[in-house]
Design a protein around this nucleic acid. Sequence first.
DNA 1: CAATAATCGAGACGGTACGTCACGTCTTGCC
DNA 2: GGCAAGACGTGACGTACCGTCTCGATTATTG
Lengths: 185, 185, 185, 185
Amino acid sequence: MAPRKQRQILDATLELLAEKGYEGLTIEGVAGRSGVNKTTIYRWWPSKAALLGAALVGAEALEFDPPDTGSLAGDLRGLVEGVARLLTVSPSSDIAVAALGAAVHDPALAEAAKGFFADRFAREAPIFERARERGEIDASADPMLIVDLLAGAVWLRAVFRRLPLDQDFTDRAVALVLHGARPTG
Amino acid sequence: MAPRKQRQILDATLELLAEKGYEGLTIEGVAGRSGVNKTTIYRWWPSKAALLGAALVGAEALEFDPPDTGSLAGDLRGLVEGVARLLTVSPSSDIAVAALGAAVHDPALAEAAKGFFADRFAREAPIFERARERGEIDASADPMLIVDLLAGAVWLRAVFRRLPLDQDFTDRAVALVLHGARPTG
Amino acid sequence: MAPRKQRQILDATLELLAEKGYEGLTIEGVAGRSGVNKTTIYRWWPSKAALLGAALVGAEALEFDPPDTGSLAGDLRGLVEGVARLLTVSPSSDIAVAALGAAVHDPALAEAAKGFFADRFAREAPIFERARERGEIDASADPMLIVDLLAGAVWLRAVFRRLPLDQDFTDRAVALVLHGARPTG
Amino acid sequence: MAPRKQRQILDATLELLAEKGYEGLTIEGVAGRSGVNKTTIYRWWPSKAALLGAALVGAEALEFDPPDTGSLAGDLRGLVEGVARLLTVSPSSDIAVAALGAAVHDPALAEAAKGFFADRFAREAPIFERARERGEIDASADPMLIVDLLAGAVWLRAVFRRLPLDQDFTDRAVALVLHGARPTG
DNA sequence: CAATAATCGAGACGGTACGTCACGTCTTGCC
DNA sequence: GGCAAGACGTGACGTACCGTCTCGATTATTG
């Protein structure tokens, strides 16, 4: 009913992904690393993407604790720093960037990515509830838009522009978005 | 001095990328499609990534005309719509998304992506110069931050969240950023 | 534990060797002819030479029945004729000549050739034992020298000089060697 | 009317043959070694075999001085030793063995080999004329048979059996052949 | 001494085979 | 039921040489 060797297989999957990237991640490699026969992997996961998808569920590296600093500005800074860390500091960056990059090519991973972002947002939402209670934003503000603007910019800079993401970037980005989202009147 | 069959090869490369994605793009496939021998391709480009990098240079699908509507709001809406179109409408989306996704895995393509974004930004900069002359933003505004926030959010939604990018999204995103970047006082 | 397609592969190898010679013998050709995949061949034999070596073991064309005519002269004539046939009559000549020619270039085949000649000599030795018992040669005669002189001359004429090997040659060669090896006193 | 770079090309051909054997001898390699363009070689020799054939003509390593010791026995010993040296001592062995081995596979080289042996025999014939004058053999003796027996045995042992060719072998072989060829009565 | 050949270098190409890697499938038998 | 072991077909990889072609550049020689 359930693969006895699941743990070893999924662990090896993430290790190899972090070490060699998505293209270097092979079923045979996972089999070798985890000391399991190749056919065993195929019995449970139909493809590399499915295997990786399963491995990512519950990957500690992608764990995420939403900040709660007492102010929206602080929380948003925390968010940006968290995303920046996720995308630039090993080993989470190896896993996250490779997996998200692969999601572009593969429907199964795309679905996983969608779930990942949905789940994340559910955990980020309280930040905005608290902010609304504190009067830092008004009801019409769009929390998902705000996090997408910030996280998107971080992705773009970290992955595509390959620019360093320093304190200054965080401050400016959060300030701009915050300013744009502050309550009218 | 120069590959005689360059045009055919690079054209076939982009076609196959659009049709089958990055993983489905093979040198042998390009050779077959372009009516050229495999060795001829290897003579000029050392890898799939290098070949794709070369093909992307001057790819019409990635052409980009910065908007000039007379107002910063209009220009930014134009930008967002342009990026959204690039990432969601075939065939440019097939090419752009696959290529950017692959840039995550490959240094050569990462470099190409960096160049692509740098070049794009150079063409977007005049938008902000005009806005400054019109007094829509002040000197301290950071144009690259603005475009990264907007383009990043578009990428996130189009590629990772797989959400539709409608008129409403454009308006809200531009409004927020514009509001946050408007001149103080 | 053992290649399931061994028979088909080795058969095809000998066929192609006979048809196209050693240089025309290719792994891909053998794969095609035997209806087997190239990788399957490489799984079991590391090189063309090793494959051919394996194919030659037990090749019917190289089978050899030592003559037993009742006299040394007759047996030696039988030997010479046998070698001449081996080296001049299809298909054994195609196989034997090509394989021996290739042994010159390849250590693995050289080893196979060595074994072939050693094995042959073991089967020829009884001829000389019988001759000794009959008093046709004395104890000091060197059987291997005798067969090497005869077989060597056949090789030289058949392969290098491309001279016909007729009855007359056989008679003269055997007579000379026999005369030289006859018991003293 | 004649290739200007002939010397360099043919020299390089023999060098490479000696170094890497026949299979390792490539037109591109010869071009590289001799500092000549590949097309220049193809302009003058249609194939590797033709090139090698040309290179072998006048190869010093194959030079041959027929012995003249004053007795047939001595001359034959000289012959055997000469052939043994040719086939076992570098660099002549590298060239001769490789070339003769390749002659098995290629008509052009086979022709060259034929010429080589014919030429050699023409130079060996005087040995037997002198022997006849001295009364060491009678008119019916067949010189070519004698040299083929001896040279053939040397080839067999040196190349196929990989046996050492010592003084003893020479003595025994010559004695046997000589004894068999001595004048009757 | 220039005109005119012969000879060569260079660059680009299609083509065959190489030997390798990873894929995904199947069968058999152990635990 | 889960797994290991082994054999296999398949596609693509990146490489080495093959043999050919075109176009200029360089030599000789000869008129």
